[in-house]
Nucleic acid binder design. Structure first.
Lengths: 154, 154
DNA sequence: GTTACTGCAAACTTTTTGCACGACA
DNA sequence: TGTCGTGCAAAAAGTTTGCAGTAAC
């Protein structure tokens, strides 16, 4: 259940190198946040990372942890599990369906598709708990955002 | 793209009846929030619902909208699209994987499965935008929460 | 030596809560 | 009529930002 030491090392290396590659500084604080996020498979929130890192770097501040995960997220090195930042959004469509989410603007569109509906929980997940619903999330960049980006680069 | 009038009516009926069925009161405010959430397929946030409902019920308060969607959510009538309430959570697992999410306690566990990895975006989604990743989310109740609930009922 | 990063504090956004009044069943 | 729901206001929770000092390269 825990991430193996080798895998942790691999992740720390990979994250560190990616930072350097983007000519960002690998500070003491960033390194320890990276260690912590690499070591955990419990999808920690910022507060949990902060508590853990503070044992080794007692002077680190909560906002540095926020800034570090935001930086790692921008580089695509870590991922927010809950999709959209900002306010919670609601869906009253009672039929089974899936979602396309734009990672740029947060647009969410329903996706109806029989093949996606056919996806079932693997047997192995029964040990985690009882699965009550299966939803496929497609992440990408929506057409309007694409257009906007090519305009910006023009 | 808009929800058809018949479908809206069906949803409003269904939501209203479910409320009554739980011996909750169908107030003017609740009915209008229900109308609004049923009418939209844009996954509105609470603020957007508030703005829309206020055109018809100018005296409604933001917290009533919050309480109404929370009530509808508890009854399973509407769904938060972003999974977990509370703080954003991060994942440093770089390999393709999926998630099991407990709707009771918010536990998130990685799920590795080749069959889920094989799920592809349907062709039709190309019109929405470019799909960069496909993730399956399994929602349910984790084993510890199950145990806790049977204990509570004992 | 520069420039980017940090810590602090304050602000901002999103959501929740306590209380007294008003409205539904 | 009794109870549940509402509006108001304040607070809590989560996150972001400006600034001056500090540390990485």
């Amino acid at each position: 259940m825990a991430v193996s030491p080798e895998e942790v090392e691999r992740r720390v290396d990979s994250l560190s190198h990616a930072l350097r590659g983007s000519s960002l500084r690998l500070t003491h604080q960033r390194l320890e946040v990276i260690r912590e996020v690499a070591r955990s498979d419990e999808h920690p929130d910022v507060e949990a990372l902060y508590r853990a890192v503070r044992e080794r770097v007692p002077t680190i501040s909560l906002d540095t942890v926020y800034r570090t995960v935001a930086t790692l997220g921008d580089l695509g090195l870590v991922r927010r599990v809950a999709l959209t930042p900002g306010p919670a959004r609601y869906d009253a469509n009672p039929s089974r369906h899936h979602h396309f989410v734009c990672t740029r603007c947060g647009l969410i569109r329903d996706v109806d598709d029989p093949e996606l509906d056919a996806v079932r929980a693997p047997r192995g997940t029964a040990s985690l708990g009882s699965v009550e619903s299966v939803e496929v999330q497609l992440r990408g960049v929506c057409t309007p955002c694409h257009r906007k980006e090519s305009d910006d680069h023009a």
